[in-house]
Design a protein around this nucleic acid. Structure first.
Length: 527
RNA sequence: GGGCCGUUAGCUCAGUGGUAGAGCGCCUGCCUUUUAAGCAGGGUGUCGUGGGUUCGAUCCCCACACGGCCUACCA
């Protein structure tokens, strides 16, 4: 009890007093016969007289949220997590002993069970009039303030159990998230996809460009990495004939924490043999719309950060170069999409672009200037990387609801091959990958492509990545010989996609921070 | 990594270079249909931690810790 408030000693004394009266403060079970939701559904519409005539017996249990003792009668508001229900306790109904036990030894936060009849008070509130009272569990710590709840952000994340009790809307967020995920499972299951689980600990962390967490296996004497993506394992399964597979599970990335990033986050990845990028886009659109409609109610649009966002199909589509060109036009940069798409044209434009004589932080000039420094630092980037960075800095990073161009669900297509080491090149254009990303509310929600299945080309892509790693790119891919060997056995034409569950949940629950949709977000340890 | 803000009772929050404040909770008493029940009485505390300035610091200064927001990194 080190560090517990003084009130805990009083509550502990009450637990002892219960034992002195032969009442176990922590009994084993209770036969709860109705939830509050069931009682409200069954009797919520009945009048005082109807309830009195029916004399409906119920047996309920819950946590004491409010207590209103009035001498020889009391009201208590119980919560069963999902709903609240008032209980009316009278000395005449319960008897001296049980009534005194309630008045003297039941605290806010304790669990009690009540058998009684459904009634309505004079003021009209549906209640249960108690005939018997069963003590169910003693809370030694006091609950937060009954009106304001638990406000302290840090305490809410660290002690989510208190947050859930004190702030009922928190539960709704996670129930909605659950509905969204279960709809995704249903969607895939009915289309013949098999849900699988692949290694969380991997000897070679692959499938994404990110820094991994490292751990060690003592018995094997080897280092392992927490996975940054399941991708390479899922495609091995397609090689093995599992033509439709998916996994919904955690990825771990050893990067910064922000309102959009948690070190562990949940991803859906699904792979479909004989699909290409366009097929994947179509089914992703259907999947995301179905999940959104399940969470929001059919046809309802989400409201995120005060701005509406519709998940009705079809979603918008834009080429990456086009998205950059739109900004260029808006800003009067004097370059069009053809220029951006052309390596020479873009290079010329960058060379001839007026250099900022006075660089103001936050301005376009400043961001261009920062990009130049960044490009110089990395020994000059490929054309694809330049386009991708322009997109990232001038389109993607602008995720403010007012100015973002990626608010409504939007597929960005034609990603440069350079940043897509696991994707096939576009059938008609060798410089872009057959790949898309889905954005909504300015955030990247999904990423899909035609999977590269030529083992020799894949090995060469890995070698290119290794070259970057040697130049200091810690996020570049590592060589995965076993994956190349798997491709050597033949991967059918396959389309795959990853969907960020947390970010989609943020949008559908109007949560400004990813921590609001993760029950136990990562924090520094308390001291 | 940088900037700004915060940290006071169990909770929500005021506040002052000189004995620490409110509401809720809690404790005592009254009250048999209340609604954040009410009435009367009671203040329960390492003012985040460590150092400094001062006769005296919760307050001013420095460092640190934790948190929030912004920003950077993430090629």
């Amino acid at each position: 009890m080190e560090g517990w408030p003084a009130e805990s000693a009083q509550r502990l004394a009450k637990a002892r007093a219960l034992r002195a009266h032969d009442v176990d403060p922590y009994p084993t079970r209770f036969e709860r016969r109705q939830t509050f939701t069931e009682i409200i559904a069954a009797h919520g519409g009945k009048s005082l007289e109807e309830l009195e005539a029916a004399s409906q017996a119920v047996q309920i249990a819950g946590r004491v949220m409010l207590k209103r003792p009035m001498g020889k009668a009391s009201f208590a508001t119980l919560s069963d997590g999902e709903a609240r229900l008032q209980v009316y306790l009278r000395l005449d109904d319960l008897g001296e002993r049980a009534y005194r036990l309630f008045e003297d030894l039941v605290d806010l936060g304790d669990f009690i069970g009540v058998a009684g009849t459904v009634m309505r008070t004079r003021k009209g509130e549906l209640s249960v009039q108690a005939r018997t009272l069963t003590f169910l569990s003693k809370a030694l710590l006091p609950p937060p303030e009954k009106w304001h709840g638990l406000q302290d952000v840090e305490a809410r994340y660290r002690q989510r159990y208190v947050d859930l009790v004190a702030n009922p809307e928190v539960r709704k967020v996670f129930v909605k998230r659950s509905a969204m995920v279960s709809e995704m499972r249903r969607f895939l299951d009915v289309r013949g996809y098999v849900e699988v689980e692949t290694p969380m600990m991997q000897p070679i962390p692959g499938g994404a460009l990110a820094r991994p967490f490292k751990t060690h296996h003592n018995a094997l004497g080897i280092d392992l990495y927490l996975r940054i993506a399941p991708e390479l394992y899922l495609k091995r399964l397609v090689v093995g004939g599992m033509e439709r597979v998916y996994e919904i599970n955690r990825n771990f990335r050893n990067e910064g924490i922000s309102s959009m990033h948690n070190p562990e986050f949940t991803m859906l990845e699904f792979y479909t043999a004989y699909f290409d990028c366009r097929d994947v886009m179509a089914i992703t659109e259907e999947l995301v719309a179905a999940a959104a409609h399940r969470a929001l109610g059919e046809g309802l649009a989400a409201t995120y950060k005060g701005r509406g966002i519709s998940f009705d199909r079809p979603f918008k589509r834009v080429r990456m170069t086009q998205a950059v060109a739109d900004v260029a036009e808006e800003q009067g940069w004097g370059i069009d999409e053809a220029g951006i798409a052309d390596p020479v044209g873009l290079a010329d434009w960058l060379r001839s672009a007026p250099r900022p004589s006075k660089v103001t932080p936050g301005s376009k000039d400043f961001e261009m200037f920062s990009l130049e420094i960044s490009w110089a630092k990395h020994g000059g980037l490929s054309h694809g990387n330049r386009v991708a960075q322009l997109f990232e800095v001038f389109v993607e990073r602008r995720w403010d609801p007012e100015t973002t161009r990626l608010w409504e669900p939007t597929f960005v297509v034609d990603y440069p091959v350079d940043i897509s080491p696991l994707a096939k090149v576009h059938p008609d254009r060798p410089s872009v990958a057959d790949r898309f990303e889905l954005f909504a509310a300015g955030m990247e929600i999904a990423n899909g492509f035609s999977e590269l299945n030529d083992p020799l080309e894949q090995r060469q892509r890995f070698l290119d990545q290794i070259g970057r790693r040697e130049k200091g790119d810690e996020e570049a891919h590592l060589m995965d010989e076993d994956y190349v060997r798997a491709l050597g056995h033949g991967l059918p034409p396959t389309g795959g996609c990853g969907v960020g569950i947390d970010r989609l949940a943020m949008i559908l629950t109007d949560s400004p921070s990813i921590r609001d949709v993760i029950l136990f977000p990562h924090m520094r340890p308390e001291r």
